[in-house]
Design a protein around this nucleic acid. Structure first.
Length: 132
DNA sequence: CTTCTTACA
DNA sequence: TGTAAGCA
């Protein structure tokens, strides 16, 4: 999730994006007008694109080169976004499951008698992992 | 100099 | 989509 923050951070002006994507400013602005992308703006109303925006533009470019029109690209983007949401939700679920397993393991160490001569975690160190 | 909007081809 | 005008 932290990566998403970086990827959505407004970073470069349109001049950089034109070089990154080989698209003309005209095309990029038009795609924005068609709501295919939604770049941020500076206080001076200048567009600032994120890595996600650039990726989307490259995606749009490849689709356009394959003869897909704006309407078609719009649908493709909707699908991609929904699929991404599904994947992200799955990742959250997996992470939650891992945390539960970790809690179970730590709890067993807490409950079971400490075996002498073996390194173990103390209650104080573990307490923060459990609900109070 | 770069970018923005609007308008016309 | 390209290009020009007039701003910021």
């Amino acid at each position: 999730m932290r990566d998403e923050i970086r990827r959505s951070m407004p970073l470069f002006p349109i001049g950089i994006v034109t070089k990154l994507t080989e698209l003309t400013p005209r095309q990029i602005r038009y795609y924005e007008q068609q709501e295919l992308i939604k770049p941020a703006r500076t206080d001076g109303n200048q567009r600032l694109f994120s890595f996600n925006d650039v990726d989307t533009l490259l995606q749009i470019k490849s689709w356009m080169e394959k003869g897909i029109n704006i309407a078609g690209v719009k649908e493709m983007l909707q699908q991609s976004q929904q699929e991404l949401k599904v994947v992200q939700q799955e990742e959250r679920t997996k992470q939650e499951m891992s945390e539960k397993e970790l809690r179970r393991m730590l709890k067993r160490q807490l409950i079971h008698p400490e075996r002498p001569g073996r390194t173990h975690l103390t209650h104080g160190e573990l307490s923060r992992f459990f609900r109070h």
